[in-house]
Design a protein around this nucleic acid. Structure first.
Lengths: 136, 136
DNA sequence: ACCAATCGGAACGATTTGGTCCGATTTGAT
DNA sequence: ATCAAATCGGACCAAATCGTTCCGATTGGT
């Protein structure tokens, strides 16, 4: 019931990137310096975040990163799904395979819990996390 | 963002145990047979569930298990916490240690998300899961 | 007092996660 | 047009956790 460290770092990284909205181009090294995370870790994160369509990466000498969408349109759920894959509490939700064979009475209830959780994460936009000191 | 298989199995096991409310004494082997889970796995689960105070175990020849509380007073959050420990999305919530050193702007917001998640799981009592076929 | 059945804890193996490194690609200047 | 610098992207390796299995300690019945 704990999300991975990578997902946690991804949220922090995106939050730092959101503050660079003015200077559109930011580098992974710069984000690492601001967040205090290891540089290679941030590189791996921006790779996944770019593949998920949350960051727009520009290669080359003067390249860098920028948010693909406005910060208000990016939620914690988006970031978590980009790093950890789809939000699915159990294997039942994705229909992968259920070890419990026959009459699994709990199976119909998991999607309800799953959506409740996803809704809680989707309710937090990136703009709220980027605020420096204010608590929600 | 996926809870462990053990936690999933624990919910199924508790759901099966709730159906034995009449015949107070149930064995771990019987629960395993009903759920289709491996017997040693169920044994490990009942150990943790008993230590958490959700199940009451009686040792000896004619011993067995029974719910320590009414099924209506046991929620999914209780079961998950019994198996996986406290519900804490990030290390920040527990105050263990935060790799992000100085100005972590996201830190104040995690408890809010954490409580929202816990509330979603605490809203599902065991009685709801024990129903045979009805969907919530 | 003996036996049988049960829970409780400890050890092993497998899988996923986290961290590090190097190569491919693109832009800017000369 | 060529060179050089800086960037992202993917691949490799170590570590921790999770899942499973097995064996011992305890208890009640006979």
């Amino acid at each position: 019931m704990r999300l991975s460290n990578l997902a946690d770092y991804a949220v922090v990284t995106m939050s730092a990137a959101a503050r660079h909205c003015g200077g559109a181009r930011t580098s992974a090294a710069e984000l690492a310096a601001e967040t205090g995370l290891p540089v290679p870790t941030v590189q791996k994160l921006v790779s996944k975040l770019s593949a998920a369509g949350l960051l727009r990466s520009t290669r080359g000498a003067g390249g860098g990163l920028q948010l693909a969408r406005p910060a208000a349109a990016i939620t914690v759920a988006d970031i978590v799904e980009a790093v950890e894959g789809p939000i699915a509490l159990t294997a039942c939700v994705e229909g992968t395979d259920c070890s419990v064979e026959h009459d699994c009475t709990v199976k119909p209830h998991w999607p309800v819990v799953n959506e409740a959780l996803r809704g809680a994460l989707a309710a937090i936009p990136l703009t709220q996390l980027a605020r420096t000191r204010e608590i929600a």
